Simulated scan of single mutants.
Amino acid sequence: MRDFVIALSGEAGQGLNTIGDMLALSLFRNGYCIFTDKSYHSRIRGGEYVYRIRISDSPLYSMRQEFDLIVSLSKSTTISQLQYFHDGTKLIYDSDSDHVSSKDFDFEVKAMGFPFKSIAKEAGEPRAQNVVALGGILGLFNVKREIPSKLIEETFSGKEEIIKANLEALKRGYDLSLPIEIPRLDVQEHNYYLMNGTEGTGLGAIAAGCKFLAAYPMTPGTGVMTFLASNAERHRIVVEQAEDEIAAVNMVIGGAFAGARSLVTTSGGGFALMQEGVSLAAMTETPLVMVDAQRPAPATGLPTRTAQEDLLF
């Protein structure tokens, strides 16, 4: 299989999620098959954030660990990913900032610095250095510029000056013509739908006839609740944010007992709190459908790191 893995490496608060989503969606809409994942800390700003995108011209079902190209916006985060480098890994960094370079490695890495921040400033928006990098990467894959342009207009709808500056930053990124070799990947017309796990779970619940959801917000399970809440009116679903996880599970048991197709969503810590409810459902032979977005647990664990300890628990 011909494929290519890009990693965006930085910190929470640097806009990596927005730019990563734009990059993934642009590649997808241009006709590539993609698979993405994210690794991040539960902080408003700061803390490691790595957004990976695997690109191919045939369907993908998993992530390949090694990076072929890493775009570094944080020296410490990039250094922490050394185990995923290989002999052919290329590194791009912002030469206007004190970011990682080839001197930071004790093995050979082809590192290239580009003045992303200066280019963004010239475009009229100093914060748009991520968009400059976005244009550079999309140019590598010959993605039609109108695709990310439309995404920028949608993302910053109503903010004409910001849209104008970001479109200029995107154009200048395309003009960089990054000197990086990529495998020849064929662009294909496909009828796939791009979604994340949260959306897929929510769509599955809707398709299965879910009519009642109760939950208490807990990362990363909250997304299923908010997805169903945003579709509640259209699909006639009652969504209740309970006062805690114990209340949520008991509400759903009550809903199922009354005959409504019910769902409770949670994560590791909430799942631990719900055990009396699980026992009650078993004892009364009441159907109980739960979404447990696992993280290192049981108990509170690490809010945004996934694992499978709950299976054993």
Rank of each mutant, 00 (worst) to 15 (best):
M1K: 13
F4C: 10
A7L: 11
L8C: 04
S9Q: 03
S9Y: 04
G10V: 07
A12R: 13
G13K: 03
G13V: 00
G15W: 05
T18P: 01
T18I: 15
M22V: 04
A24S: 13
L25P: 00
L27I: 13
L27D: 09
G31P: 07
Y32H: 03
Y32A: 05
T36V: 05
S39D: 12
Y40L: 15
Y40W: 14
H41Q: 15
R45D: 11
G47S: 03
G47W: 06
Y49P: 00
I53Y: 04
D57E: 01
P59D: 01
S62A: 14
S62P: 00
R64Q: 10
D68R: 12
I70F: 03
S76H: 13
T77P: 02
T78K: 02
T78Q: 06
G88K: 14
T89I: 10
K90L: 05
L91E: 09
L91T: 06
S95I: 02
D96F: 04
S97F: 11
F105A: 02
D106I: 09
E108Y: 11
K121M: 13
K121N: 12
Q129P: 00
Q129G: 05
G136D: 05
I137K: 02
L138V: 10
G139D: 00
K144L: 12
R145I: 15
E160T: 12
N166L: 00
L170I: 01
Y174F: 07
Y174M: 01
S177C: 13
L178F: 00
L178M: 01
P179E: 14
E181K: 14
E181D: 15
I182M: 12
Q188T: 15
N191M: 12
L194S: 09
L194K: 10
M195D: 06
G197M: 01
G200F: 05
A207G: 08
A208S: 15
G209Q: 08
C210T: 09
C210N: 01
K211I: 13
M218H: 08
T222I: 10
T222H: 06
T222S: 15
T222Q: 05
V224E: 02
V224G: 07
F227D: 04
A229R: 03
A232H: 07
I237L: 02
E240R: 13
Q241M: 15
E243P: 08
D244M: 13
A248M: 12
A258Q: 11
A258V: 11
R261G: 08
R261Q: 11
L263R: 03
V264E: 10
V264W: 05
T266R: 11
G268V: 09
G269T: 09
A272N: 06
L273Y: 05
M274C: 11
Q275R: 13
E276V: 08
M283T: 08
E285Y: 02
P287Y: 10
L288Q: 09
L288C: 06
M290Q: 04
P296T: 09
P296Q: 09
P296M: 02
P298D: 07
R305P: 08
R305M: 14
T306V: 14
T306L: 15
A307E: 08
A307M: 05
L311G: 03
F313D: 14
F313C: 14
